[in-house]
Design a protein around this nucleic acid. Structure first.
Lengths: 154, 154
DNA sequence: ATAATTAAAGTCAGGAAAGGTCAAAGTCAA
DNA sequence: TTGACTTTGACCTTTCCTGACTTTAATTAT
């Protein structure tokens, strides 16, 4: 008996395959109703199956006319970066390692100076100062991977 | 099903585009009647879509012969960012408010699309998912402010 | 002139329609 | 039988839209 989450995952993936632009828009409650499950299970599927490690970006809005958009980022250009995403960054990354990677990206012409500055600021200890040291590197990894998907896109 | 408020927003923006002096004058009740909605919905659209942060100024008069004037004001980059830094962000900022500001930056040519996407990813709920909801907006404000400093110095 | 009437626009609380969070309970394989 | 993964439900937040009530200004009647 395949697990429901797997079925929903497959269903969403098919929808994305069929879409022209690697993006779909769903309504959480509607989908939950189709699969006769709790709406929050849709969130579970999204966070476990459509996360940034797997190359997906999610955007959503609440309120009347709300929606959930799922983008699949095509990563073909450079598997070098794919490795970085999964191996060099992983669960956790220090500031200096992150900055090193960004320097490399800059030298390779993947990002310009201004982009480099923006990303460094976003990952800086100052920006993340409120987070306890133990958790900071994990958070930094999350933010970095999310940003990388933008750089990888196309 | 596009939301009515979005449709009204688009309609007003087109009117402003077509105007020579970046200013239009409307009548609230008339517009409400055109779109078959409550007059107060026009106010809702004005306050959510044509506010200061987005670079608009509203001026109106009640009573017979009343009117609503909407001005689009040209915003100078540094001034605008400083205002945002001082007034609109503060200790804490929601995702949707931050995204809204970024949309305005983009529309005014202060950032390009890729920069917009990078910053949106960095401030997304996904990137900050590990942080408990209550603290997330505070962290988002910290990161956003750091990033804005980069945009200021160029 | 003053008062009454009419014609605007503004405010605000609240309902409805979405999606989000988190912890507890359930399931299942090793 | 324990630990990882799944499922659920109670509660929360955001966004949209409306209607009753208020305020202000112009017009008309006295």
């Amino acid at each position: 008996m395949a697990k429901l989450s797997d079925i929903i995952e497959g269903f969403i993936k098919e929808m994305i395959e069929d879409a022209e632009d690697n993006m779909i828009e769903i309504q959480r409650n509607l989908l939950a109703h189709q699969f006769d499950c709790a709406p929050s299970q849709i969130n579970y599927v999204l966070t476990t199956r459509f996360n940034n490690d797997r190359g997906y970006i999610i955007e959503s809005r609440r309120g009347g006319g709300g929606y959930v958009k799922i983008y699949k980022i095509p990563i073909s250009k450079n598997n070098h970066i794919e490795n970085i995403l999964n191996k060099s960054i992983g669960e956790s990354i220090t500031k200096s390692k992150a900055y090193d990677l960004l320097d490399t990206f800059y030298e390779n012409g993947m990002i310009n100076e201004r982009e480099q500055n923006i990303i460094k600021r976003a990952l800086s200890d100052r920006a993340l100062a409120k987070i306890y040291y133990d958790d900071r590197n994990k958070l930094r990894a999350d933010i970095f991977k999310e940003i990388l998907l933008v750089l990888l896109n196309e």
